[in-house]
C-alpha cells in the first residue's frame, strides 16, 4: 500500500478520479494481468478465451495462419486453443484486450487510430526479448510494456486532438514529460500509474508504468530497465511516435545495467518491426488501423 502511494501523486490520482468516460479495463484483461507471475493452467486460459469474442476471433485467425496451420485445413476454437498453447494464448489475449483499449488512444499526441496499440504491442515484444536476454520475468515485462503508455488515454481525456503538437516546440529540447507536467500537472507515466491503481492492477504493473521513462537507479529487479529499453526499441522501429517524438532521455543507468550496446539494439529493432508487421498482416489490422 505504501508503495502504491509513492507511485501516484495526489494530482495524478485526483485527475484520474475526476475524469468522466475513462475506459474500464476489460474483464478478461484484468483476469490475465492479475495472474501475471502465477502460472495459469490450461483450463483457466481456455475459459478466458471462450468468454471474450475478440480474443476468440484473434486466436482463430492466428491458429488458421500458415505458421500454425501449414496444411490449410480449417481449425475450430477448441483445436486452436490446444495448438497455440498456454503461453501464446496469454500473450494473444493480452495484446487483443490492451490493443483494443488503446486503439483510439494518442489523439492528443496527434497519433492516428491504432498507432498507440501498435506501439504497445511492439514495446511488449521488445520487452519479452530483452527480459529473456537478462533473465528478468518475461511475463511481467511483457504486460508492463503493453500497458506502459496507458496514461496517454488520460491525457486524451484532458486535451483535444493533437493538443500536444505545439507543446514540444514551446520547450525546445525539454524532456516531453516536463512539458506534460507543465500543461497538466502530471505526466503520462504518473497518470498511467494512477489509472493502474484505480483499476486495481497489481503493484508491479503500476511500478512499470510509472517508471517506463525514468527507471529507478536502485532497482529491485531489472523489469523497469527492461520496459524502459523496450519503449526505446519500439520508438526506433517507428512505433508510437506522436508529438513527443524522441523527446525522452535513454537512461544511461538502465542501459549500463542491461549491458545494451548498439550492436544489441539494432537486431531488437529489426525483430520488433518484423514481428509487428507480421501481426498486422496476419490479423488484417485487428486493431482497426487504416493507413
Amino acid at each position: 500500500m505504501a508503495e502504491l502511494m509513492q507511485l501516484t501523486s495526489k494530482r495524478a490520482s485526483a485527475l484520474v478520479a475526476h475524469i468522466d468516460g475513462l475506459p474500464a479495463m476489460p474483464a478478461a484483461a484484468m483476469r490475465l494481468l492479475s495472474a501475471v507471475g502465477r502460472n495459469l493452467d490450461f483450463t483457466q486460459i481456455d475459459a478466458i478465451v471462450r468468454s471474450d469474442e475478440a480474443i476468440a476471433a484473434r486466436v482463430l485467425r492466428i491458429a488458421n495462419s500458415v505458421i500454425y496451420n501449414p496444411r490449410g485445413t480449417t481449425v475450430l476454437l477448441p483445436e486452436a486453443v490446444r495448438r497455440l498453447g498456454t503461453r501464446a494464448l496469454v500473450r494473444i489475449a493480452m495484446e487483443t484486450e490492451v490493443g483494443g483499449l488503446l486503439a483510439e488512444g494518442g489523439r492528443a499526441y496527434g497519433m492516428r487510430r491504432g498507432d498507440l496499440s501498435e506501439a504497445s504491442v511492439g514495446g511488449a515484444v521488445a520487452a519479452g526479448l530483452i527480459a529473456k536476454r537478462v533473465g528478468a520475468d518475461e511475463g511481467l515485462c511483457f504486460a508492463g510494456a503493453l500497458l506502459r503508455d496507458v496514461g496517454k488515454i488520460v491525457i486524451d481525456a484532458l486535451a483535444g486532438p493533437a493538443a500536444l503538437d505545439a507543446l514540444a516546440s514551446r520547450g525546445e529540447g525539454m524532456p516531453f514529460l516536463d512539458c506534460e507536467v507543465e500543461e497538466f500537472g502530471a505526466d503520462h507515466s504518473e497518470l498511467g500509474a494512477a489509472l493502474a491503481v484505480h483499476w486495481k492492477l497489481p503493484t508491479p504493473m503500476a511500478r512499470l508504468i510509472r517508471f517506463h521513462h525514468t527507471p529507478p537507479q536502485d532497482p529491485i529487479d531489472p523489469c523497469c530497465d527492461v520496459v524502459h529499453a523496450a519503449d526505446w526499441v519500439a520508438r526506433f522501429a517507428g512505433l508510437g511516435l506522436g508529438a513527443d517524438g524522441m523527446l525522452y532521455p535513454f537512461d544511461r543507468g538502465a542501459r549500463e545495467r542491461l549491458g545494451l550496446t548498439r550492436s544489441d539494439l539494432e537486431p531488437l529493432v529489426i525483430a520488433v518491426l518484423t514481428e509487428t508487421a507480421a501481426q498486422r498482416a496476419a490479423t488484417k489490422l485487428a486493431f482497426g488501423r487504416s493507413t
Partner: peptide
C-alpha cells in the same frame, strides 16, 4: 533522422 534526447553519442541511429 531525429536523435534520442541526451543520447550521449551512444546509439546515434538518427
Amino acid at each position: 533522422g531525429a536523435e534520442v534526447l541526451a543520447d550521449e553519442g551512444h546509439f546515434r541511429i538518427g
